[in-house]
């Protein structure tokens, strides 16, 4: 029985990059068919509308066996615990997450940096607790490690998820320039 693969983490922690890696590995992305794969907005393709309604309705997970879905923390708390999962937890230095978020938002958010730092800390704590309370296996992938040394991290990923691809195949997603000449 294959599990549902959940990619989670705080926003801007590399979850989209991880989804791209899974995509390259041929793991089906749980899609609602609403969005098309768009070269201009590849990340959009990984956002599943149904996740936004997960609090009231998590039935979309029933179709997700063997597929991968991105669910930002702390939303995994609303997963249906009767199903089986494997979680890839993307982690990034909190200060980097906060800076990246501030850059993305139009107004100056630095005046709320500590607030968000604290909120995110609570979100992480809650999400980890949910996984441990429900015996859901997970691995942590540090975003900075993934960028710096993709092969090592991808090896971990392949082992954990039982992916069929080679390390090189997937590392290309992270560092295309490395493999330019292949």
């Amino acid at each position: 029985m294959s599990e549902i693969i959940v990619v989670t983490g705080l926003p801007r922690s590399g979850t989209s990059l991880m989804m791209q890696i899974f995509d390259k590995s041929g793991t089906p992305i749980l899609s609602d068919g609403i969005r098309e794969k768009d070269v201009n907005n590849p990340e959009g393709y990984y956002e599943l509308e149904a996740v936004k309604g997960i609090v009231k309705d998590n039935s979309f997970l029933k179709d997700a066996e063997g597929k991968v879905v991105k669910i930002v923390a702390p939303l995994p708390m609303f997963l249906d615990t009767k199903l089986k999962y494997k979680v890839v937890f993307m982690r990034r230095e909190m200060d980097e997450v906060l800076r990246s978020q501030e850059k993305m938002l139009e107004k100056d958010q630095t005046s709320e940096r500590e607030k968000f730092r604290t909120i995110y800390e609570f979100h992480l704590k809650k999400t980890y607790k949910f996984f441990s309370d429900n015996n859901i296996p997970f691995i942590d992938i540090m975003y900075s490690d993934l960028i710096k040394d993709p092969e090592n991290e991808i090896k971990k990923l392949i082992e954990f998820c039982g992916l069929g691809s080679s390390v090189e195949d997937l590392s290309v997603v992270v560092k295309p320039e490395l493999y330019r000449n292949r």
Binding site: S111, R113, E114, K115, R117
Partner: peptide, 12 residues
Amino acid sequence: KRYPLAKEYLNY
């Protein structure tokens, strides 16, 4: 002991 958070709100 989250002093930066306390400071942030105090400034606000």
